[in-house]
Nucleic acid binder design. Structure first.
Lengths: 148, 148
DNA sequence: CGATTATTATTCAATATCAAATTATTTGAT
DNA sequence: ATCAAATAATTTGATATTGAATAATAATCG
């Protein structure tokens, strides 16, 4: 029904699964964005603050690796966060190529305030599946996402 | 382990599932992009050609609804496809606000050529899960993506 | 009929995103 | 120790993406 592609049974199943996975992720994110629980942050900005909050200061490279984003992208996102004084760049003493990124007090306060609200929103959206179903989904996704 | 957030069991499970879902989708797409099976098309351009190929000519609005993209975005993507002569805009006779988008012969040839290769790549990536697991995943995602 | 409302596409401004090129620095091998 | 290769950040150019504003057209309702 969703797939109009003609191919082997294996291909139809794979394509159908891929499409549903993609659509679930996109529509979930669209609904979360519509709820406005991200506190005037983009998804990626939120991700950067969140990773700094939970894992402590780190260089841009590491942030990019955690979030699966390119270096050039992280440079821009950090630029925009820095303009709003949510993070700051510091020279790294051991390696002068690196800039260590730290949360400012403002940044910490913001993520502390926004995170629980956003987690609530995620929890509400996910609740169409019961905990066991969610765990099943998480495990399947974990295997699919491997190789990172 | 992946989630450093402190909250209720329900929240932890939901957040963990959400993160794994997001990462699976992103890393899957990154690996597919790396394979270069998209024939010099971006994901969205591919999506536009694919939907026109399988569902026939339609106006930009409809394309946007299918792909969950904004109107402004579709205008630009169609612009870029039109520059490469892969689609063309036609005035709609019944409604002069609409532009009907049609595949050109070049566009049809391209998507016919690229689609099977890309489906193969998707099938290969999905094959870490057996067909039954894929179906389970598809069903869970379908329920999660509802409300579109 | 005529005015209000809705819909379609476009434009604009801001942010995201990647890949490729560049610069600065570090590391490793000889 | 020196030189080559690797790594970190930045810049640039192209495309994506949204939301808001606008213009053109259509539909509705009083």
């Amino acid at each position: 029904m969703p797939t109009h592609y003609t191919g082997t049974v294996e291909e139809i199943i794979a394509l159908n699964t891929f499409i549903k996975l993609t659509r679930a992720t996109e529509s979930l994110n669209a609904r979360l964005a519509a709820k406005g629980t991200l506190g005037n942050l983009t998804i990626t900005q939120f991700g950067v603050l969140e990773v700094l909050y939970h894992l402590g200061p780190m260089c841009q490279n590491e942030i990019g690796a955690k979030l699966l984003k390119s270096g050039g992208n992280i440079t821009l996102v950090i630029d925009n966060l820095e303009k709003r004084s949510l993070v700051k760049r510091q020279a790294s003493p051991e390696d002068r190529r690196r800039r260590t990124i730290t949360l400012t007090e403002t940044g910490r306060k913001l993520i502390q305030e926004v995170l629980p609200v956003h987690v609530q929103a995620i929890t509400a959206e996910m609740s169409v599946l019961n905990p066991q179903e969610q765990s099943t989904l998480a495990n399947l996704c974990l295997r699919l996402g491997k190789k990172d």
